[in-house]
Design a binder for these strands. Structure first.
Length: 279
DNA sequence: AAGATCGACAACCGCTTTTGT
DNA sequence: CACAAAAGCGGTTGTCGATCT
């Protein structure tokens, strides 16, 4: 017998999420935690597929998401990781706290790919598109673990921070040093080669904890979730909503962490009835 | 000013992998 | 071990705002 569809197509809403739907989903997750996505729509009163709920939560509503364009260093890390891992977006995303695979994939397709092509680098192989004209190119992908690249390693540009720089205006984003953790910087500072750093490569290929555990609070499951939600999140949420009446700056700003601020932003947007863009 | 085109990104689709029985 | 269900993943599409003509 064939596999059942992930959800009953009849009566299931598709398309952009509304603020009201976001609100229901947020409230449900905050109250019950993440479990059994298939049951979520019914329990949360949503006419959506469970899969759609999961995607909406993981890609957009999770409070630990950073949002906004990737910083130059994040972009560079993505390039390095892509050189090592290929299109394994979830693996790449796991190394960038607060970023989702979907976000990185979109950013890759819309920004980074073009930049690399403009710089004469094949975004798939990370090798120069025209080796003759790019031998002197100073950009590097650190993808020296790519066996094919190693064969050509005279031509493979490298992104090391050893004085190499990008000559075009792309370097403003690719080489800027915005706000990546020192761990990330260390990672960037090292060539990720199977020969020179098999442990790092192994780390990248395995499901290790992210470099920064920014999202660890949100990886709770239902049992912990309830405590978390009742003790912290909901309290914070209602407090945060209260804060809106006063203005966030009327409070001790240090008492809010990123997740709280994100919840506030989401709830504020929902309150304004236009949802955090995306809907 | 209006329509056409383009770019960015959220969301969907379908396949694969993991987990539970 | 076999099977089904659930979750994860990556490619693709649809929508919407910005820009161009």
């Amino acid at each position: 017998m064939g596999r059942q569809p992930c959800c009953d197509k009849l009566g299931v809403k598709k398309g952009p999420w509304t603020g009201e739907e976001d609100n229901k989903l947020i409230n449900f997750i905050l109250t019950n935690g993440q479990c059994c996505w298939r049951a979520v729509p019914k329990l949360a009163g949503l006419r959506r597929c469970g899969k759609s709920c999961r995607l909406r939560w993981t890609n957009y509503l999770r409070p630990d998401l950073k949002r906004g364009l990737l910083s130059g260093d994040e972009e560079k890390l993505v390039i390095d990781l892509h050189a090592s891992l290929g299109n394994r977006w979830s693996k790449i995303a796991a190394k960038l706290p607060g970023r989702t695979d979907n976000e990185i994939k979109n950013h890759w397709n819309t920004h980074i790919k073009k930049k690399l092509v403009k710089m004469g680098i094949d975004p798939v192989t990370h090798e120069p598109l025209n080796k003759e004209t790019n031998i002197s190119s100073s950009y590097s992908t650190t993808n020296n673990n790519n066996p094919k690249s190693q064969e050509d390693n005279n031509h493979v540009p490298s992104t090391e921070h050893n004085g190499a720089s990008i000559s075009s205006d792309e370097n403003s984003s690719l080489c800027s040093s915005d706000n990546v953790s020192s761990n990330d910087s260390n990672l960037l500072d090292n060539n990720i080669t199977q020969e020179s750093d098999p442990f790092l490569l192994s780390y990248l290929l395995n499901d290790e904890p992210p470099l920064v555990e920014a999202s660890s609070d949100w990886e709770f499951q239902s049992s912990e979730a309830h405590n978390y939600c009742s003790n912290v999140t909901l309290d914070n949420t209602s407090m945060l909503l209260d804060c809106q009446d006063f203005g966030i700056h009327d409070f001790d700003f240090d008492s809010f962490d990123d997740a709280d601020m994100n919840i506030l932003n989401i709830l504020e947007a929902i309150d304004n009835n236009d949802g955090p863009k995306g809907s």
